[in-house]
Design a protein around this nucleic acid. Structure first.
Lengths: 166, 166
DNA sequence: ATTTATGCAAATCCTTTGCAAATCT
DNA sequence: AGATTTGCAAAGGATTTGCATAAAT
């Protein structure tokens, strides 16, 4: 399914692609076939992905224009800049997720299957803001990841060692 | 992991180095001059650091034995394993901090000066556990970083763009 | 016609590995 | 002696950059 979470919020009038085109124009950048194709694919589903997964997907959804690795990286950066994607680093590699029309949330990260489970907590934000206020710190964002083992993986085999908490 | 955090609870009797030697022996590993020197330097101050900063420090605290880059990486991993250091990834690079005799805490990260400010919140842990319980998720740890601009940097110049939240 | 993008190859950055020589126990 | 470590050089993996060509405005 594509992107019609338009009515969901108050009103996200533009589709991701339209929003991106708007962004590009506002910066004198050009709307190219690869940028268009990439945004299209990125907003087809709404799961987390890294550069390689995206590149693979772009190749598989064959018949379409080829997008080189450097261009993928360049475009991902632009999408983050445009506010369409959010970038995070999970154990060394960059992972992206939608940030346009999606509500703010945090994650539970299963070390076993590497799954990311989203959740939302207003209290969390309150704590964040309270802590920041105390330190006279201007908040621009935050990142909260709970690491552990999800219910599916909580089975006979024991978890791997602590790894890098992301 | 076979750590004896028994000591941590009751009372931190051993120095980091002693604790590390204990760990090494329990694994049939050896106490070498570089491992000793490195631990010594790491626990001189208690700030966050990355591999390069440590390597630099090891060189400057001259007169001492030289420690090669690979050995630094290898030893840092052992210290993490031993529960003496905690590792996190900040925008691609690994950053370490003391985890022996230090209370659990989280961070405020200033994008301007890259400073890490620590803080502690019991409520945060409560929220974490509540969320996990709801999802039947077994918590092994968490990572909370508030990104923004610290009071020192909140000056005339405006903050850089959102960067990678970590 | 201009100017920005793309793709390729090569370069960077950080971290890890293979291996022979050096060092612990 | 016997096993583990170290340092060196080189390998790796992810992401970025230089530059000539292709495409968008």
């Amino acid at each position: 399914m594509s992107n019609t979470f338009a009515l969901e919020e108050v009103q996200v009038a533009l589709s991701p692609l339209e929003r991106f085109e708007e962004f590009l124009q506002s910066r004198g950048k050009r709307v190219t076939s690869q940028r268009r194709y990439l945004v299209e694919q990125v907003f087809e589903g709404h799961d987390h992905f890294d550069a390689d997964q995206l590149i693979l997907r772009l190749q598989q959804a064959a018949g379409e224009k080829h997008v080189s690795r450097p261009t993928v990286y360049r475009t991902l950066a632009e999408l983050v800049d445009a506010g369409l994607l959010r970038k995070m680093t999970l154990g060394g590699r960059a992972v992206y997720e939608h940030d346009y029309g999606y509500p703010q949330h945090d994650h539970l990260y299963c070390q076993e299957c590497e799954k990311l489970i989203e959740f939302h907590s207003d209290e969390l934000r309150q704590i964040r803001d309270a802590v920041a206020r105390e330190q006279r710190f201007r908040v621009l964002g935050h990142r909260f990841i709970i690491t552990g083992v999800c219910s599916d993986c909580a089975r006979p085999k024991r978890p791997k060692r602590p790894l890098d908490l992301v």
